[in-house]
Design a protein around this nucleic acid. Structure first.
Length: 887
RNA sequence: GGGCGCAUAGCUCAGUUGGUUCAGAGCACCUGCCUUACAAGCAGGGGGUCGGCGGUUCAAAUCCGUCUGCGCCCACCA
């Protein structure tokens, strides 16, 4: 250890210990006879870089895993990354574009080669960054959702569900992202209120031969560019205004195509004009109406969001350009009645921010009904607990309304769907090409490999990450019923706790539960701890574009990882948003220094075989109880996942109780500039206490605690605080804690007198105490309050400044310095306060209903309050009298 | 529109089954201190009608209703 400077320097310490932990494989876990404690990391995107949300999540994970390790469990934290198909493919496409390469000019294989290369070069940076934070992941177990074994698991589960009849291919209206050129799930669409216009258009009634009459109806639409795809005009059957339209046909403006007027309850009579244009190919609801009324489906928008030749006009124009142009055309043709400003929610792609285009396409779906039902039961039965509990409501709502999961994505980066098409259009689903050919030949023996072709789509990323708690241990198991779970899976599954954000409760948490139940027959984790979202001081979500997100690595470099961890935890209660501010990290840094300096004090003490002073004896007795008491509190907090409360309890124990009280009480005085020695017994106890404190705070502050713990005494070569035991609570002497706390109040009272009268610390005061007081603590009062003499008296003397500790009266004699008028005023105020209090208590006690109905204990306590108040008032009044006499 | 949640000190939040003096903590703030561990510190101090109204109860920050303000999720009336 370096010379102990007055400031803790984390940069000298952190890398050293992290490397040592790694070298000694302290993070590594293998199954053994101990109870397992398992966490799987929420795998960050392989291309991701560390942001404050990761810091929060992984700090919590690391605190839990380190605590479990010190509790004697076999702790295993499995790290890894997610291939994140859409996000990663986007990044690769962008990168290629910047090099002048278009994805469309590449073959699938070429593109994937680029993507893998990029992944090898830049992937997994985030895992390196996590080490800076102190994360004690078992790096030997690092996984990647697209590594061969895990990809195989994904394919096997697809085959599994297909054979079960739960996977089907269907034509559905999907959310089409015209930029990423893929369908995205409902959950990946964000609706934003968007300013647009409401166009009122005139559709003329046809004379039956395709010619307009002079009669017309008016529809209101936000998407005039889709009128060419209209299949009908729909009105509500109950709407008498439109009954004259029954059986009529109308003409689509500009192209004059004839479409029928139909009736459907779906149409709101009082919205718009009560007439709805039905465009089955380009609107979800219209599609459903179309199905009910067997309307033809005409697609006029292509994958890129441009009008195609079926539109007849404006062919090749982008949908938004087409909108502007068609409005002009409609106006010229006399079909535009009016334009209103209108704000409506529009769906945007979460990934590309493109406006989602509802589009009919052929997609693969997984039936949710049975899976959702089981997964709901898992949580409702309490086999998986949510913290905070209220998220169960959100979860239930989703599970009861779960729609079939669209699992195909029109991307290349991901697990390719294991479906092969035969020339006759039939499909075989098999784990690989060989088996597919085999299966195909059963249908048609003449087929060769060249005759069948694999589906071009890949699977949704969540279709792989839902296997994570299983596949990181035994990727062969999912979808492979004949496979016996391996030793790792048997030992580590189900995992213990999952820490994640509530934003992915459906994407990921729910689906992991489904997969867990499906493939393992039980829940994947016992507890799910939902963190809040990290926001800035002003409550804004941290984001790159706002520039309000500090770089965690900069923070770690400036303040140290321990400080960053503390800063993060201080403001994080489960489920609440985290308002992050650097000042919290400064608080962490200050705490590091406090710990550091308390150790400097301990180390600098002279020790000798001298008798133990009574102050030291009572301090040791007190802190021993205080420590045990706090250990209990902390354990209770941990058991309820109240991590920041646990931290705060240890923080106060370390700073207030240990540093401000215990060390000050024990610290030997200087006599003529020479530090007196401390007796070796007290010294030993102090080191023990310090050791306990380090172990208590280690899960939160791994680096500084290892540094000091190693220096505290001679350690074995591979002895680490990581595996030291969580301190156990011993006996708590409640009575003594109470006595000590009275002494503390007495000391604070004297100090307050000193402060208000500007009496320098060196000047000794004396103190009179009237009432019960633990005599063994008199020396403590003398030492810490700078009191020369404590007198136990029957009556307080005149001419002092008085205060009370509970019902005990105390006085600091200060003839000459006392401002009598001020003391009178102070005392009168006190009397007033107690009179008010007494009146309240007496009102209660005189209430017959209270006496008869409230529990006896409550009544008794009120009586005690009354008695205490009376006794206080009595002494206050006598003080007041003597003060007045003096005047 | 449907659902969930929040409102307590300047800020961030505890407050468990209604009942000990229950109105708390941390930070910030104010005053005084360069006291041989630490000024990134020490000692002391001020500060809130528990969002409004109504109800239940002997008793409400706590339970119920309602209003106001805010947040999140789900669904989007073209």
């Amino acid at each position: 250890m370096n010379e102990l400077g007055a400031k803790y320097n984390p940069s000298e310490v952190e890398d050293k210990w992290y490397k040592w932990w790694l070298d000694n494989k302290f993070f590594h876990s293998e199954p053994d006879s101990r109870e397992p404690y398992t966490i799987v990391i929420p795998p960050p995107n392989v291309t991701g870089i560390l942001h404050m949300g990761h810091v929060l999540n992984n700090t919590l994970n690391d605190v839990l895993i380190r605590k479990a390790r010190m509790d004697g469990k076999n702790a295993c934290w499995v790290p890894g990354t997610d291939h994140a198909s859409i996000a990663t493919e986007n990044k690769v496409v962008q990168k290629l574009k910047s090099e002048g390469i278009n994805k469309e000019d590449l073959t699938r294989e070429e593109f994937l080669a680029h993507a893998w290369k990029w992944k090898e070069e830049h992937g997994g940076i985030i895992l390196k960054q996590l080490r800076k934070l102190g994360a004690s992941c078992d790096w030997d177990r690092t996984r990647f959702t697209m590594e061969p074994a895990l990809s195989e698991a994904v394919i096997n589960t697809f085959v599994h569900f297909y054979r079960k009849g739960w996977i089907y291919k269907g034509i559905r209206m999907v959310n089409w992202d015209p930029v990423a050129l893929t369908a995205v799930s409902d959950d990946e669409v964000v609706h934003k209120d968007t300013k647009s216009h409401f166009y009122h258009l005139r559709y003329y009634i046809s004379d039956g031969k395709g010619n307009p009459t002079d009669k017309f109806l008016v529809i209101a639409t936000t998407r005039p560019e889709t009128i060419m795809a209209d299949a009908a005009i729909c009105v509500n059957p109950a709407d008498e205004r439109h009954h004259w339209l029954r059986g009529k046909k109308v003409l689509i403006p500009l192209i004059n195509r004839e479409i029928p007027v139909i009736e459907d309850d779906y149409v709101e009579m009082d919205f718009g004009t009560g007439c709805l244009k039905v465009t089955p190919a380009h609107d979800v609801h219209d599609y459903e109406i179309g199905l009910r009324h067997k309307l033809p489906v005409l697609e006029i928008i292509d994958d890129h969001g441009r009008l195609n030749e079926k539109a007849e006009i404006l062919i090749g124009e982008d949908r938004f350009v087409a909108r502007k142009k068609i409005v002009k055309l409609l106006e010229e043709a006399g079909n535009l009645v009016k334009v209103e400003d209108y704000t409506s929610p529009v769906g945007y792609s979460e990934r590309t921010d493109a406006v989602i285009e509802p589009k009919l396409s052929s997609q693969w779906f997984l039936k949710m009904e049975a899976l959702a039902k089981t997964a709901l039961e898992t949580v409702e039965s309490g086999r998986t607990r949510f913290i905070p509990e209220r998220y169960i409501n959100t979860y239930r709502h989703w599970m009861e309304n779960a729609r079939d999961w669209c699992i195909s994505r029109q991307l290349w980066w991901g697990q390719r769907i294991p479906a092969w098409y035969l020339p006759d259009g039939s499909v075989v689903v098999e784990p690989n090409a060989e088996k597919a050919l085999e299966a195909a030949r059963k249908l048609n023996p003449d087929l060769t490999a060249a005759d069948i072709h694999q589906d071009e789509d890949v699977l949704d990323t969540w279709f792989s990450s839902w296997l994570w708690p299983i596949s990181v241990f035994d990727p062969e198991l999912p979808g492979n019923p004949a496979h016996e779970p391996n030793a790792d899976l048997k030992y580590y599954y189900p995992t213990s706790d999952l820490v994640t954000g509530p934003d992915i409760i459906f994407f990921w948490v729910a689906r992991m539960i489904m997969a867990g139940e499906e493939f393992m027959g039980r829940e994947p984790f016992s507890n799910v701890y939902f963190t809040g979202i990290v926001r800035d001081k002003l409550g804004r979500k941290m984001s790159k574009t706002l520039g309000n997100s500090p770089d965690p690595l900069d923070l770690i470099a400036t303040y140290g990882a321990d400080s960053v961890r503390i800063g993060m935890l201080l403001c994080s209660s489960a489920g609440n948003d985290i308002l992050f501010d650097v000042s919290q990290i400064e608080q962490g840094r200050n705490f590091c220094n406090k710990i550091w300096n308390s150790y400097r004090l301990l180390k600098g003490l002279k020790v000798a075989d001298v008798p133990q002073e009574s102050v030291a004896a009572s301090a040791v007795k007190w802190f021993s109880s205080k420590l045990s008491q706090t250990i209990r509190t902390v354990e209770d907090h941990y058991s309820k996942f109240r991590i920041s409360d646990a931290l705060m309890a240890i923080y106060k124990l370390f700073w207030d109780d240990f540093c401000s009280w215990y060390l000050e009480a024990v610290k030997p005085a200087y006599v003529d500039g020479v530090q007196q020695p401390l007796d070796s017994g007290t010294y030993r106890c102090s080191l023990e206490f310090f050791d306990s404190l380090l172990r208590m705070i280690h899960p939160v502050m791994p680096f500084i605690t290892e540094e000091l713990w190693q220096d505290l005494k001679e350690r074995g070569e591979s002895e680490t605080i990581m595996y030291a035991k969580t301190p156990a609570a011993g006996k708590v002497d409640e009575a003594f804690l109470a006595s000590f706390s009275a002494a503390q109040e007495a000391i604070a009272g004297v100090r307050a007198v000193r402060n208000s009268k500007n009496i320098p610390p060196r000047e000794k005061l004396s103190l009179e105490i009237k009432g019960e007081f633990d005599a063994s603590l008199v020396p403590l009062v003398e030492k810490l309050a700078g009191v020369g003499e404590v007198k136990m008296v029957d009556e307080l003397g005149d001419g002092g400044i008085n205060f009370m500790v509970g019902t005990v009266e105390m006085s600091v004699p200060l003839s000459g310095l006392v401002d009598v008028a001020e003391e009178i005023e102070k005392t009168e105020k006190e009397i007033q306060r107690y009179e008010g209090f007494l009146a309240g208590v007496r009102k209660k006690l005189s209430n017959e209903a209270f006496i008869s109905r409230a529990p006896e204990a409550v009544v008794a306590s009120e009586r005690k309050k009354e008695a205490d108040a009376l006794s206080k008032l009595e002494s206050l009044r006598s003080q007041l009298n003597s003060l007045k006499n003096k005047k």
